[in-house]
Write a protein that binds this DNA or RNA. Structure first.
Lengths: 142, 142
DNA sequence: TATATATAGATGCAACTGCATCGACATATG
DNA sequence: CATATGTCGATGCAGTTGCATCTATATATA
């Protein structure tokens, strides 16, 4: 069993094309509004959801689907930008704890309307909620 | 009209997550089999479909969704690897024609089984053809 | 306890990307 | 024709990524 059917190929092509176009639309909007890329948003959101104790970098990396070194460097930039705090981890001498700063929260909050507008225009306006749910459900099987 | 509904958000999240995971799976398979990235495959396929006359770089860029400078550099690498031929364009002194070489054809052909296996395992095995078609159809509305 | 193995995170290096801009040719306009 | 504007493709530069590897600490094993 290895030949793929036409529908599988069509799904793959559409998946690649649309995800790229949508992602680029979001990135462009954020950038032109003077905000950081969406990867920063994702990280900030995870850190905010994690609460005041924050997360260890290795926990964050699993949630934002970034490689270890990518996460390490993303955090460097975010620390430098003052959006997150890094402190040595008490329980594990190798590790650290990352928590979102007030500035980080406010940047995330400010990014959301930009982000949301693109999703609304590009997805909300094109798919009825039922169809969007159906799309999410099909994707979740992959 | 700007608040997004839950289904839209779920669709977006699933779209981003799955497309990244699948893409990475394909890239990893290709790389570990010693082949170039998927962007090369896409370009080779478009050039092969275009026939012996090939394509102008600006035409190719529209089909593979790469920025102009990205296409320019991708073509440099592919020329250097001997997968495509570049020749000055007769009708337009600014331009060039890119055509796939025999080696390019054979590399593309060799990449396909690797590529296909991932799609088959990750999509074909998870979605019935009807569902895959449905997924493609929903995505096509975006 | 001493040693081996595993895990957390950082980093040097080469490759790749985005941005802005350039040079060359093409097309439109006076 | 002369000049302005537009399009094609390349490229310098700075920032980012992937890979491999390193250091430091933690955990398992003898």
């Amino acid at each position: 069993m290895n030949e793929i059917d036409h529908a599988t190929e069509a799904a793959w092509t559409a998946l690649m094309t649309k995800s790229r176009v949508l992602l680029e639309a979001v990135e462009t909007s954020l950038k032109s509004a003077g905000y950081p890329p969406i990867a920063w948003y994702d990280a900030l959101l995870e850190l905010e959801k994690a609460g005041p104790d924050g997360l260890r970098p290795f926990e964050l990396k699993d949630r934002i689907l970034l490689p270890q070194y990518g996460t390490s460097r993303l955090l460097n930039r975010m620390v430098k930008a003052g959006l997150v705090n890094r402190q040595d981890c008490l329980e594990d001498g190798r590790g650290q704890n990352i928590s979102i700063s007030e500035k980080g929260k406010s940047v995330r909050r400010a990014m959301w309307p930009i982000y949301e507008r693109v999703l609304s225009e590009r997805i909300g306006a094109k798919l009825k909620p039922k169809d969007a749910a159906q799309l999410a459900s099909l994707l979740s099987k992959l």
